[in-house]
Design a protein around this nucleic acid. Structure first.
Lengths: 350, 350
DNA sequence: TTGAAAGCGCTAACAT
DNA sequence: ATGTTAGCGCTTTCAA
């Protein structure tokens, strides 16, 4: 069905070696004839066989927890923009924030890629053993990995970003703030939680544990967390959500509850949203470079693949930016200080 | 560095065949010893070698024009939900709406996957020849391909959806409508354009050619198209954008121009947005199943891979739904019928 | 410059 | 039930 290098060799009257050399760009006597035969047969070298022999795939894997998160989509854009120039194929894989999926995905990548850019699902679960044994270079993106300090990494200053959010709310006078955190066993979850708490602590503000809701970075958890926070007997005056998807969930909840932002409640989220400016009020957020993270990670990986990297791991940390738009203002005095629990509806965010 | 089947065989004192059989789940006498050796060596079968021999990869490719488009992200979710159960790896690749990228990506997939779900960049450019010669099953998703009628496909009723949008605007009394179309050499671009025009035509409404702006399905083109439409001497009273990203671009432009929706202009877009309900006004849209498209495509592909598909191609077409929220209302009488061109700012959508 | 031969790691007849 | 042998399609010593 499909022509092999042997077919080409036979038809062109040369050895497979010669054809192989021609493919590799070396000059051979019968170049013209061989090329003609290749075109006649529409021959294309079998990548699998080629990989098996040479150990090179000209592909890399990009493993993220959630492709439907616009942040990771942007990261992918960045990775691809440079891999395109390098003529490397990118295989994007989704772990759905699950360590089991991650293990399966990473396993499936062994032998099929020359390197991997990984956003680990959990800090404590290192699924890279297989890849490392196979000598596949790995670059960590956006999240650390316990025992992964020997790997190149590109991160953002999550503690700093969360602190920016906290300080913004504090400066407006908020003291009773709801925190919708990510999982504490992920880098951004933990660091944003800690950074936020630390900034509050530095201002002498102690957060009641009931005001801290641990979500899973997905939309629904932001929704549920918000319902909980607003069902509390003593109302919060502001909410900080630790990522884009949970922010959207939270905003949906507020919308369904009929709570006006920022009149009744201030809101700030980590990660910018495509539509942040178009919401009313326009959403204040902590933004961070996404495409750039992808670009830098791919450059680091390229160096590793080419063996040109410095012997010790490179760690890049990018800065966040506070974008003040319109979703935060000083807390409004309220008669009883509480939003009635009866305003909480039953149902789903959709 | 990495153990091979030969190492295991030697250490366990059996042949490689026996180990191979054990790997395949057959009963062998020395199962315990072999298993122990496998674990000692932390042996894992080389997938590339396995593929070369068996011709099976247990992987599929999902090739989309734009991973950062939430619609395709949702499709990917659907594909993955079923491929997970089938224990198939999914390699997501991005063509960035470019036929050249598509060709490169598809080429890179040959031999590496057992099947491909493809959203073709252009209707007229068929890059599937390689895959077909290698007997790789292909399912078309969301877009057709000239000469691809022999391939399974999962589409939505784009003409119908666009007609729903047109009829909605017509029923409100709009006659001078701006159309932000997708590329006419893509299925959804062409079909939504044609469906929209046909519905208008059926109502005796003829659209001035200057009211039709052809975008590229990306955000920026929606922004630019909107600036153009609003710079026209005679104002439009409504706009229909043919996909989610262009809708966002259009909304940004309207925001920057300070045009109030729906008071000054009605707006409806194809594709729902995560935040559609939270915008003010909540956005009216034509929605369509995304996850489901992925699920169905993956099921069709599975059947093909297993050789269980019916001999002739299956074509599935899903229905769209008009979601009336708050961004459309009857056109408002205006003194001169035009929005002054001077209101158009200079700059970018960001 | 070219080709013969070996082999990448695995699986599958075939024979035992 | 197990092993021998051949070979998937390609690249790469090694000699010529």
């Amino acid at each position: 069905m499909v022509a092999t290098i042997g077919d080409v060799a036979r038809l062109a009257g040369v050895s497979t070696t010669t054809v192989s050399r021609h493919l590799a760009g070396q000059r051979i006597r019968e170049a013209a004839a061989v090329q003609a035969t290749i075109e006649t047969l529409d021959f294309r070298a079998n990548e699998v066989a080629r990989s098996l022999k040479s150990g090179v795939t000209r592909s890399i894997g990009l493993v993220v927890p959630d492709v439907s998160n616009p942040f990771f989509a942007a990261v992918a854009k960045g990775v691809e923009s440079v891999s395109r120039q390098l003529e490397l194929n990118v295989f994007l894989s989704n772990t759905d924030e699950s360590v089991e999926r991650e293990r399966a995905v990473l396993q499936g990548l062994v032998g099929r890629v020359d390197g991997v850019i990984l956003v680990p699902a959990r800090e404590e679960t290192d699924n890279t053993a297989e890849l490392r044994r196979a000598n596949v270079p790995i670059v960590l993106l956006d999240r650390r990995l316990r025992g992964g300090n020997d790997l190149d990494s590109v991160l953002v200053d999550s503690p700093g970003g969360a602190a920016q959010a906290a300080e913004h709310l504090l400066s407006l006078g908020h003291r009773r703030i709801g925190l919708i955190s990510g999982p504490l066993d992920t880098t951004p979850g933990r660091e944003r939680h800690d950074g936020f708490m630390a900034a509050l602590g530095a201002a002498g503000v102690e957060l009641d544990p009931t005001l801290i809701r641990i979500g899973d970075f997905k939309l629904e958890s932001g929704y549920q967390a918000t319902l909980r926070l607003l069902g509390l007997p003593s109302a919060v005056t502001a909410i900080f959500a630790a990522n884009n998807l949970m922010s959207i969930g939270a905003l949906r909840a507020l919308h369904h509850l009929g709570i006006r932002v920022p009149d009744e409640l201030s809101f700030i989220g980590f990660d910018d949203l495509e539509l942040a400016e178009l919401l009313s009020p326009p959403l204040s957020v902590i933004s961070r470079p996404a495409v750039e993270q992808g670009v830098l990670a791919m450059r680091l990986l390229r160096n590793r693949i080419e063996g040109a990297g410095s012997p010790k791991a490179q760690h890049i940390v990018l800065e966040t930016r506070l974008l003040v738009r319109g979703s935060c203002r000083p807390p409004q005095p309220s008669s009883d200080g509480a939003i009635p629990a009866t305003r909480i509806p039953i149902g789903n965010p959709s």
